[in-house]
Simulated assay, not measured.
Amino acid sequence: MNTMNDVEVIINNKRYTLSGYESGDYLQKIASYINTKHTEFKLMENFNKLDVDMRNILMQINIADDYFKAVNQVNEMDQEADMRGNELFDLKHEVIAAQTKLEALQKEYGKLQNEYNEAQKIIIKLQTELEDSKMK
């Protein structure tokens, strides 16, 4: 069973204790992400003129937007991976079919090679018999 981790972080210049089953590094990463968002918004010209509630709502909307974009990106990547998996499956079947055809052609070639060799032996035998009959 996982243990609960308590990690002190600083978010927007205030100290907080985050608790969770995730690692302390992960919780610090979350705090860092939120601090980055605060920094981005503070650099916007009119952000500091807004009241605290509006700033918090804008921050929440922006984080939710990042979340949904990431979810969409993951879904698109999953779909692409599925599509590539299907393509790979089809290609493997094409390779197997080509290998099967190659093996059949190699067997046919072997049979034809044997027939050719037998025909060559017959030709040599007939040529020898012809030359022997001419000498008589």
Rank of each mutant, 00 (worst) to 15 (best):
N2C: 08
N2D: 15
T3I: 14
T3E: 15
M4V: 05
M4H: 08
N5H: 10
N5Y: 06
D6N: 15
E8K: 03
E8W: 05
E8Q: 13
V9C: 00
V9S: 01
V9I: 04
V9F: 00
I10D: 09
I10S: 09
I11R: 03
I11Q: 01
N12G: 05
N13F: 00
K14Q: 10
K14D: 08
K14P: 02
K14W: 11
R15Y: 13
Y16R: 02
T17C: 04
T17M: 06
S19A: 13
G20D: 07
G20H: 06
Y21Q: 05
Y21S: 09
E22H: 05
G24D: 12
G24C: 08
D25R: 00
Q28L: 08
K29Q: 02
K29V: 01
I30W: 04
A31I: 00
A31H: 01
Y33N: 04
N35A: 06
T36P: 05
K37Q: 09
T39M: 04
T39Y: 15
T39C: 04
F41R: 12
F41C: 14
K42L: 10
K42F: 13
L43T: 10
M44S: 12
M44Q: 14
M44N: 13
M44P: 13
E45K: 15
E45P: 13
F47S: 10
N48S: 12
N48D: 14
L50R: 03
L50M: 12
R55Y: 09
R55N: 10
I57M: 15
M59S: 13
Q60R: 10
I61V: 14
N62V: 01
I63D: 05
I63F: 06
I63V: 06
I63A: 02
A64I: 00
A64P: 09
A64G: 03
A64V: 00
D65L: 09
D65T: 08
D65H: 11
D65E: 13
D66S: 05
D66N: 11
Y67V: 02
Y67L: 06
F68E: 07
F68D: 04
